[in-house]
């Protein structure tokens, strides 16, 4: 199975220095594990792709288990989508993995979708685990949802899958792996820069919405709003028999739609 992993130029979340994006290294790990599982059938190989002016710290990805990294060199302001689309179409990959969103660029997570559209591939979002499907040419994807829930999907290959940060941690860094890995540089055709229709300024964290604390209320009222949310129509049972209490609790839980005990 031929797998491509898209690696973007990221910035470290704390120091702000150039660094690989963690979720893309997690994608790389999923790719390496999947290739090892499929290794017997078709000889797995994993290729990394990056479009941008320079690789910088992305060579670290070689130390995290990548054997072959293709660098599509182009201008920094250019849109990476056309260069990546031609390289991916030429490579004939069965599976393309990307991060759910970058960290250091626009961070909108839109690139995998535009690529999937350009290549005519189906796209699956937020994978936390990958496994070869039962039928040949299929892939099992475990999709991460909110509150720890999962969705198990089976897709026909080739496909593009974005990876969620709930996926297993990246493989540990090995210096020898980085020395062994092969970097191939290709010149990307010049692409137009996307029109900058946004205005940028330093980030200012905005206060999140607070439940109901009325602005201008006294401190006492704000504390009340923070601690006593409204729970409509409170029912009070004083000294019921334990069995009756148990029945009441269970009926209440069921009314709230919890499958308690089922």
């Amino acid at each position: 199975m031929k797998i491509a992993v898209l690696l973007s130029a990221g910035r470290h979340s704390v120091s702000g220095r150039p660094a690989p994006v963690p979720v893309e290294l997690q994608a790389l790990r999923l790719a390496v594990d999947l290739a090892a599982q499929c290794g017997g059938q078709s000889g797995g190989d994993v290729t990394g792709l990056h479009a941008g002016p320079e690789l910088g710290p992305l060579t670290d990805a070689l130390g995290h288990g990548l054997a072959h990294l293709i660098h599509l060199r182009g201008e920094g302001t250019a849109d990476p989508a056309p260069a990546l689309a031609t390289a991916l179409a030429a490579g004939g990959y069965d599976l393309i993995l990307a991060g759910r969103a970058g960290q250091g660029g626009w961070d909108a997570g839109l690139l995998p979708y535009t690529l999937a559209r350009a290549l005519g591939l189906p796209i699956i979002a937020d994978a936390a685990g990958l496994a070869p499907g039962e039928a040949p040419g299929t892939l099992g994807v475990e999709q991460a949802l909110a509150r720890g829930a999962r969705r198990r999907l089976v897709v026909r290959l080739p496909a593009l899958v974005t990876v969620h940060s709930a996926a297993p941690a990246p493989l540990p860094f090995a210096f020898a792996g980085m020395r062994r890995g092969r970097v191939e540089t290709r010149e990307a055709p010049p692409a137009p820069a996307p029109a900058p229709d946004v205005e940028e300024r330093a980030y200012r964290p905005r206060p999140k919405l607070i439940a109901k604390a009325a602005t201008g209320a006294s401190a006492l009222e704000r504390l009340r709003a923070a601690t006593e949310a409204a729970s409509g129509g409170g029912r009070l049972l004083v000294d019921p028999a334990p069995e009756e209490a148990a029945r009441e609790i269970l009926a209440h839980l069921r009314a709230l739609g919890l499958p308690a005990g089922r």
Binding site: G10, R11, H12, S13, G16, Q103, G104, G105, W106, D107, A108, V198, E199, E200, R201, A202, Y203, R204
Partner: peptide
Amino acid sequence: ARGRRVEQR
């Protein structure tokens, strides 16, 4: 954007 360093508007 840019790793929560920049606000786009």
